[in-house]
C-alpha cells in the first residue's frame, strides 16, 4: 500500500531551514516506520539522517515523534498508523543536530546527576550481593528501561523547564533507591528533592503513553515522592 511520509529535514551545515519533505513509498504489511526510513534513504534520498542500531526495539536509538507521539520507529508498524500522511519528526525538546538526530547530551547529564549505579559502602562479599525475589520484583520492571528518551522528551514539564531531571532519570533513581542492596538514597535525594527534581512532575502521563517498554513510570515517580515525604513529615 502506498503511504505518504512527511519527514522533518534540517541540515545546519548547509544553512538549511527546518522543513518537511514529502516521500511516497509502497509499504507492505508488517513494514515498520524504520523500514520505510531505510527504503527512503536507500532508494529515494541518501541524505536523510536518523539514528538506529538494533532495529528490534532493544537498543533505544530510534526514538522519534511519529504522528505526534514519541515512539520507537522500529517498533511502529506503518499499517497501524491512522491518517493519509505519516509525520516523522525528531524527539521534541532537544537541540536538533540534523534531520531526525537530536543532541542527547542534556539527557545523559540528567541521568548522571542521579548517580545511576549501585552505591554500597559495605565490603563486597566474595559472591554476588544477593537479594530476595520479593526485593528484586520491586525494581524489575523499572530495570526494563532502554534509555530511548521517548519519555523525557514527551514531558510538558520538561519542555517548560529544561533543568527538570525528567522521567527517565527519575525512573532510574527509583530503580536504585528501591534496590535493597543500595545505600545511596540520601545522596540521590539531594538531586531528587529539589525544584528541578521530583516536584516538577505533575502526573501528566505523556511519558507512560510514549514508553515502548510500557513501564509504569508515573507510579514509580509517585513512590519516590511518597517515600521522601513520609520520611520528612
Amino acid at each position: 500500500m502506498e503511504r505518504t511520509f512527511k519527514i522533518f529535514r534540517y541540515d545546519p551545515e548547509k544553512n538549511g531551514k527546518p522543513h518537511f519533505q514529502t516521500y511516497k513509498l509502497d509499504c507492505p504489511s508488517g513494514c515498520t516506520v524504520l523500514d520505510a526510513l531505510y527504503n527512503i534513504k536507500g532508494e529515494l534520498d541518501g541524505t536523510l539522517t536518523y539514528r538506529r542500531s538494533c532495529r528490534s526495539g532493544i537498543c533505544g536509538s530510534c526514538g522519534m515523534k511519529i504522528n505526534g507521539i514519541n515512539c520507537l520507529a522500529c517498533k511502529t508498524q506503518v499499517e497501524f498508523l491512522k491518517g493519509k500522511v505519516i509525520y516523522v519528526e525528531p524527539l521534541p525538546g532537544f537541540p536538533i543536530l540534523r534531520d531526525l538526530v537530536i543532541d542527547l547530551e542534556p539527557f545523559w547529564e540528567k541521568f548522571e546527576a542521579i548517580k545511576p549505579y549501585l552505591i554500597n559502602n559495605s565490603k563486597p562479599p566474595t559472591t554476588e550481593r544477593y537479594q530476595s525475589e520479593e526485593d528484586q520484583l520491586k525494581i524489575e520492571e523499572a530495570s526494563w528501561c532502554i534509555l530511548c528518551n521517548c519519555c523525557t522528551s514527551s514531558c510538558p514539564s520538561f519542555w517548560a523547564n529544561k533543568e527538570y531531571l525528567g522521567p527517565a532519570a527519575l525512573l532510574k533513581a527509583y530503580r536504585f533507591v528501591f534496590d535493597s542492596r543500595d545505600q545511596g538514597a540520601e545522596e540521590r535525594y539531594r538531586m531528587l528533592n529539589t525544584r528541578s527534581g521530583l516536584w516538577r512532575c505533575h502526573t501528566i502521563f505523556n511519558c507512560m503513553d510514549a514508553c515502548p517498554q510500557d513501564i509504569n513510570i508515573t507510579d514509580y515517580i509517585s513512590q519516590l515522592k511518597t517515600r521522601i515525604v513520609s520520611e520528612r513529615y
Binding site: 515523534k65 505526534g68 502521563f205 505523556n206
Partner: peptide, 12 residues
C-alpha cells in the same frame, strides 16, 4: 505537528 494531547495531558 503538535504533540498529541491524550487523556493525562488534557487532565493536567
Amino acid at each position: 505537528m503538535r504533540y498529541r494531547i491524550r487523556t493525562g495531558a488534557l487532565a493536567f
